[in-house]
């Protein structure tokens, strides 16, 4: 986990799409963000430890996912443990956060049965989108956006993709994820913030307001969540620190993964 101090910043951008407008001031309390996405191996440890915490509506085990479900339960495909966990819904990611919290003696943030969250709990959660953006901006100071595992990734990056390595069910020559932390970290110490997999954030999606905000966490209702960072399927120019997208929270797709965060 990488720690980020209390800070004020401008979130959003006037130069991208309508979703990122208007830029507005945000104050954030201190938080920690995982330096990499949760891997298929990490997630399988959770599935083995707490199989009753997961149902088949929260995880999709058909191809090209790295986790399959056989007679002996959930299994990570051979050689795929370091690839990001994909094909889990927002609530599947939330269930993992709660498991991590319980294991380390923190209060769980999510009530999965009621589909609610208590952000006063001290446990693991998905990052607020403003936290994600603050961390990504710190890692990619102006002019150093660099290249990630995006649709137009350079050859050296593409060579790390699951299909090129002959791993799992991604096919050779097709866009696909690379292992978590496969490439050097950004200036903040974070791996693959840009590209690879779109990352579930805590916030429900809503258009931005111009009003300054303190620790914003999105609207209280709705079933679309913010996803950040773009993916191997998205062109690089669409994957900026300020870029935001919305995803239906029950979506389980090979371009969605997540990393965990915690308030400090």
């Amino acid at each position: 986990m990488i720690s980020f101090a209390r800070q004020d910043l401008v979130v959003g951008s006037a130069d991208l799409t309508a979703r990122e407008r208007p830029p507005h001031r945000v104050s954030l309390g201190p938080f920690a963000l995982a330096d990499r996405c949760v891997s298929a191996g990490d997630f399988t440890a959770f599935l083995h430890d707490a199989p009753d915490d997961m149902d088949h509506l929260m995880i999709d085990c058909i191809d090209p996912g790295f986790v399959v479900h056989r007679a002996d339960g959930f299994q990570v495909r051979p050689g795929c443990a370091d690839f990001p966990m994909i094909q889990i819904s927002f609530w599947g990611a939330a269930a993992y956060c709660n498991w991590l919290s319980r294991g380390e003696g923190f209060q769980p943030v999510y009530d999965l049965a009621r589909r609610e969250a208590g952000l006063s709990a001290d446990g693991y959660r998905l990052p607020r989108e403003a936290e994600w953006e603050a961390a990504c901006r710190q890692g990619h100071p102006a002019g150093t956006a660099g290249t990630g595992n995006t649709a137009d990734a350079p050859a050296a990056c593409r060579a790390l993709r699951a299909g090129e390595a002959g791993l799992g069910a991604f096919r050779r020559g097709e866009p696909g994820p690379i292992p978590t932390a496969a490439r050097a970290p950004d200036a903040a110490g974070l791996h693959e913030m840009i590209g690879n997999v779109r990352e579930w954030c805590h916030d429900r999606y809503a258009p931005y307001s111009a009003e300054p905000a303190r620790d914003p966490s999105g609207p209280g209702r709705g079933s679309f969540r913010v996803v950040r960072g773009g993916s191997f399927a998205d062109p690089g120019p669409a994957c900026r620190p300020a870029s935001r997208m919305a995803a239906f929270e029950d979506t389980k797709c090979e371009v969605y993964g997540f990393r965990v965060a915690r308030s400090l």
Binding site: H56, I62, D63, V68, H69, R70, A71, R77, D250, K252
Partner: peptide, 26 residues
């Protein structure tokens, strides 16, 4: 029943799954 978007249900759409899969939706 685990899916939502219409394209996933089209007659022309084909997915694949691990042949040893034991899943309540196959």
């Amino acid at each position: 029943y685990t899916l939502r978007n219409p394209e996933s249900f089209e007659n022309g759409t084909t997915f694949t799954s691990d042949a040893l899969s034991t899943l309540p939706y196959i």
